[in-house]
Design a protein around this nucleic acid. Structure first.
Lengths: 210, 210
DNA sequence: ATCCAATTCATACTTTGATATGAGCATGCC
DNA sequence: GGCATGCTCATATCAAAGTATGAATTGGAT
């Protein structure tokens, strides 16, 4: 298992302009950020992206795809990298649409190096936090999957506030059996107390309203 | 206590251009939305805003204040209305800054009526959801304030997963007394089960990470 | 065929939680 | 002074939770 704090961030640059790719690569390399460049959206989509923190710099105007469509497609394909948009010809509605879809920033060309660096830092930071949350949720879900079917059912009912007797009644089993499953679920989920188990359950299945 | 579903939304328009104020008022009134207009930021800030759902339409360029500064000041003064920005001369960085600060939309003038209506509907909807959440949190906090000092302490420790014995030890009281406070806290907070109390506690004091 | 995991249940014991009844003491308010 | 509220604790009782030991059944994997 990799150490999150040791993971190096990778900046992915998608721009059909070779000189821009080069300039950005130089800029990012100058501050020690690993950088990969792509000339087209398809080029990026065809390249396996390592599951490491980082961000994605996209030119709105790409040969094969609109930058906004590209942005929309990324979430569908499971790429979670924060996006920084840039463009030489964009207008306000375009920038607003990008921001609504979750872009971290939107830079008109030409931009100052420092503005791009600020955007990249912000994007990487947002990604780190998102990854941390996602990682926690995944771990809990994985643990939950190690529970047997019955244990899962019991855990759901218990974290819903039901007593062992009610759990047993709902599942058509004896109270003793319910206790056994309950204890097993607590152990497997690493919950020392019921309060822990409730919070774990809410990570897996968030409550909308209290 | 007002019924949230019966509350009428109010659209507040801040623009120094009287003809724009009139046009927007006509537009919103035509679909049955109560509308109030203001010529300056100060005008809005000086007018008491009823605590009702709605949104705020701001022209970036105001006589007395920049629209972005205005937006920033609103949160400081406790006004929670979702903001829709509009402008006749704005650029991309300005729109991006507004969106980063939480604006719902950013419309360049001239805009289509439908675009403005869409933005207003989206803003009102966002506000409704925010109000619903805020209202729930407030209610829980108010309830919590009806607890005595000891009951609060006990509730915190209990929802932290501690047993009555530990709670008593931590507070230097007997287990029996702890039980009494625990029961009182449950009753006053309307928690039927410990699971309920844990979730209520997390509304008051959200846990960062599971 | 055999082993294993899951599921079920019983008995028994200990700990914890929930609640009621009764009571002493301090503080602050009218 | 009188009174309410909050905090404290004891005794007692009952319900529920947690744990251990032992055992039977089932279904699937080896």
């Amino acid at each position: 298992m990799p150490l999150p704090s040791d993971e190096k961030s990778i900046v992915h640059v998608v721009d059909d302009d070779a000189s821009m790719r080069g300039a950005l690569q130089d800029l990012f390399l100058s501050i020690g950020l690993e950088t990969r460049t792509y000339a087209t959206a398809q080029d990026f989509l065809d390249t396996p992206v390592p599951d490491s923190p980082g961000c994605l710099i996209i030119d709105i105007r790409l040969p094969d795809m609109n930058g906004l469509d590209f942005q929309a497609q990324l979430s569908r394909t499971g790429v979670r990298l924060p996006v920084v948009m840039m463009t030489g010809y964009g207008d306000i509605p375009m920038s607003v649409r990008a921001m609504k879809r979750g872009a971290v920033d939107f830079l008109p060309k030409p931009f100052k190096d420092q503005d791009m660096l600020d955007a990249v830092f912000a994007a990487i930071e947002r990604g780190r936090q998102q990854r941390a949350v996602d990682g926690d949720v995944s771990k809990v879900r994985e643990r939950f999957e190690t529970l047997s079917a019955r244990e899962k059912q019991v855990m759901v009912l218990v974290t819903d506030g039901k007593m062992n007797k009610q759990v047993a009644g709902d599942l058509g089993i004896s109270e003793i059996t319910a206790k056994i499953h309950r204890g097993a679920a607590m152990r497997k989920m690493g919950a020392r107390t019921l309060a822990d188990l409730v919070r774990i359950a809410d990570v897996i299945n968030p409550r909308r309203r209290p």
